[in-house]
Design a binder for these strands. Structure first.
Lengths: 249, 249
DNA sequence: TAGTGGTCTAGACCACGAA
DNA sequence: TCGTGGTCTAGACCACTAT
């Protein structure tokens, strides 16, 4: 692998130092981002990658280690290394934090109420870093846990990255799986901001609770491998029989 | 380092396999738990530890890597490796998730309203895994962010692990620092369970908000290096000007 | 300049899963 | 049985910090 720069060479001041394994890592991440390595598929062995990039196997391993720690890859001893996919387990434990009070974790059902394509309003454009006049696809759905409606969810994504999403029939329950599988868009990270708010009348009616009852408002911004905003999602959650689980380590 | 067991030896069925670096890690964690290595202090170099345990430096490094990833250690290149302490930054970014809506992060002030020692009630005993009749120390305090009261907080800890805590004058703002510094109790992890609830009258009066207003209830159970419950804390948080930040990776 | 952690390499062997 | 990832070692050199 052609090393980008080396300290002590060239005589110029060394602005920074980028370890070889990080250069390797970036190239491999780019392969996933470009769709060259697809979600769920196996990638070449450590030795194959090392040979291809003219780098030692240990260096490749360190790159893969970091990518595994970031949930981009999944290793299976004796089998190989795979590109992480947004299967039910990953969504459930990595991206879905609402849990039944009795402790049972399950993936919520979805009932889609509306899907539309429209020009982004000011807030959507700002949150998704879109140019004026860009379009978004909006989805409104209800989600149930243990048979009871628990969440009223409004979603907005850039229409340009998800062509014809509004014509999907039906909209699948696992949206991140769709983003990856059909559009090659990998949701790598998300930031959630939580508030307790009085439930608006419309959502209260849909969820079968009294208007004004305290609900948990989750404002989530999801980004792809390049840090680009991919989805803005606002979820109103009942927390009378559910709670949001957060582990601090 | 005496290796615990080795696969293929002794003829018996190999129940499990514990890598050497994990055995090293456990011994080192125990040193922190026992107070042999104190919070904020430097630990011996990788080569010194390796020599002492008759293990290669690479194996020690892997153990230290994991401990660093778990926020038990902090490495400083060119200087050495240190036992992590609950300083302001760590509390702020690892254990305190409430943020001003304008994005500014700060460590909250505290105003202690009450400290008492008493027999644990049923719920405290259950949450802290205490025997019947055990004592707890309870602390009730208000916490402010940006000059405004934001949190009403009830804390319970096992009195046995924190002797004379109720006679501390004053109770410091950074409790986890006190737990570690004075009592040698390291808070390693915490689990938070969040709900939106109507604010009880008493807390509403203290926080200067209308009773019944939705507030965020954070139920936190903190555990030490051995997984033992160390503190149960229930915080009621205003979220009209603040929000709880959660990063999903 | 000395000492620490950080990177990179190379090779040996082990545990695991699939064929 | 084979190929994969996982562990362990050993040694060289680099970057960073304190003195």
């Amino acid at each position: 692998m052609p090393v980008e720069r080396k300290a002590g060479e060239g005589g110029g001041a060394v602005v920074g130092f980028r370890p070889l394994y990080r250069q390797v890592k970036e190239r491999l991440v780019r392969r996933i981002a470009a769709g060259e390595w697809q979600a769920g598929r196996i990638i070449p062995s450590e030795f194959q990658i090392a040979a291809e990039l003219s780098v030692s196997q240990g260096t490749v391993r360190k790159a893969l280690d970091e990518m595994t720690a970031e949930n981009l890859l999944v290793r299976r001893q004796g089998v190989g290394t795979f590109v992480a996919s947004h299967d039910e387990d990953r969504i459930l434990f990595q991206f879905f934090k609402l849990t039944r009070d009795d402790g049972g974790r399950e993936f919520p059902d979805s009932q889609v109420l509306a899907v539309e394509r429209a020009r982004a309003n000011a807030e959507e454009a700002a949150r998704l870093s879109l140019a004026r006049g860009s379009h978004v696809v909006r989805i409104h759905r209800l989600r149930s846990l243990g048979g009871a409606v628990a969440i009223s969810e409004h979603i907005a994504v850039p229409a340009a990255r998800f062509p014809d999403l509004e014509r999907s029939e039906p909209v699948p329950n696992n949206l991140y799986g769709l983003y990856g599988g059909r559009y090659g868009v990998t949701v790598a990270r998300a930031t959630e901001s939580l508030k307790a708010v009085p439930c608006p009348e419309a959502d209260a009616a849909l969820m079968g609770i009294a208007p004004g009852m305290p609900v948990l408002l989750i404002d989530r911004l999801a980004t792809d491998l390049d840090g680009q905003e991919v989805e803005w999602r606002v979820s109103l959650c009942r927390t009378d029989r559910f709670h949001y689980l957060s582990d601090l380590k």
